[in-house]
């Protein structure tokens, strides 16, 4: 049962529980396991009774302390465009805009809500939700350059439990933020805009930027992650993943508390620097290639 407690600790750390929370949960379990043993339960009985540490940790996420409460995004000066009731989770979320900013956040309601401000003509946008796929797009405009230059701001609030199968956000020059939204496969693309991803659990994450910057903080990826940048900088902090691939041309990549199991780094002239404090967590470097940049880990 010692391994149970050790595994539980690892699973809780993975999910960014505070030190105090972890200590308390482990103490509670130590006590309950002792009681169970005094009761004459065998090791097999105990496994049956206490179950999988990963499942337990997952179920405990709802009782996490402080810093991880759902942040209320201020929508005071925004207008509500539409609110859709969500009856079933695991829908797809697709957002495709040109020069607008979009922030996709989780909230405690069972609805998808779209807010906007500074939008010149809201009729230029198409919003759709059929229960399976949610989409926010710009209507095709045939203009001189194919797209207009205005820049509005959108906030898309999704239920905390939504857990989309596919979450895709594409933007040309706007800013994208994805905050506290868990999803299966996430794909984010920007040309000159920045991408910010904070607090999320995904199966896969695929990010691509050209001249904008990408920031990823407090994110766990159970399978593959890749970030592709031309001249934009990449910042990774408190990130775990199975396989992580970073590729830049001239952008720099900085990592702090970045613990992928396997990592591949590739850059032409950008520098990469990763600093991790926990030396016991092994990061396998599958390959690192640079032409004129410098790659340093720890």
């Amino acid at each position: 049962m010692k391994t149970f407690l050790e595994n539980l600790k690892k699973e809780l750390e993975k999910r960014h529980f505070t030190k105090e929370d972890i200590e308390e949960i482990l103490e509670d379990h130590q006590e309950m396991i002792e009681e169970a043993k005094n009761d004459g339960l065998s090791d097999d009985d105990l496994i049956e009774k206490f179950g999988e540490p990963s499942k337990l940790a997952e179920d405990l996420v709802g009782s996490k302390s402080s810093n991880e409460e759902t942040e209320e995004v201020n929508t005071d000066d925004y207008k509500l465009l539409q609110s859709f009731p969500v009856l079933e989770n695991n829908v797809d979320v697709i957002i495709s805009l040109t020069s607008d900013d979009v922030e996709c956040v989780a909230h405690d309601e069972e609805t998808i809500e779209v807010f906007y401000k500074k939008v010149k003509n809201i009729n230029d946008y198409k919003l759709n939700f059929d229960g399976k796929v949610f989409s926010l797009e710009e209507k095709k405009k045939i203009g001189l350059f194919g797209f207009k230059m205005g820049s509005g701001q959108f906030i898309v609030k999704v239920p905390k439990e939504l857990n989309p199968n596919n979450l895709s956000i594409k933007i040309v020059s706007g800013e994208v933020a994805l905050v506290q939204v868990n999803a299966k496969d996430v794909s984010l693309r920007a040309v000159s805009g920045n991408l910010v991803v904070r607090q999320g659990q995904y199966a896969s994450l695929d990010m691509s930027i050209v001249s904008g910057d990408a920031k990823v903080n407090n994110v766990d990826i159970s399978k593959d992650a890749s970030i592709n940048s031309v001249s934009g900088d990449i910042t990774l902090s408190e990130v775990t993943a199975k396989n992580f691939f970073v590729k830049t041309v001239s952008g720099d990549c900085k990592g702090r508390e970045f613990y992928p199991e396997n990592v591949r780094l590739k850059s032409i002239s950008g520098d990469m620097k990763i600093t991790n404090s926990d030396q016991s967590r092994i990061v396998n470097i599958i390959s690192k290639k640079t032409l004129s940049g410098e790659i340093r880990i720890n």
Partner: peptide, 20 residues
């Protein structure tokens, strides 16, 4: 442990449902 025992005596649920 007492709460968990009392409940799992009657219902098919285990610790990892009750404790959270």
């Amino acid at each position: 442990y007492m709460i968990i025992n009392n409940i799992s005596k009657h219902l098919d649920v285990n610790e990892n449902t009750i404790y959270p």
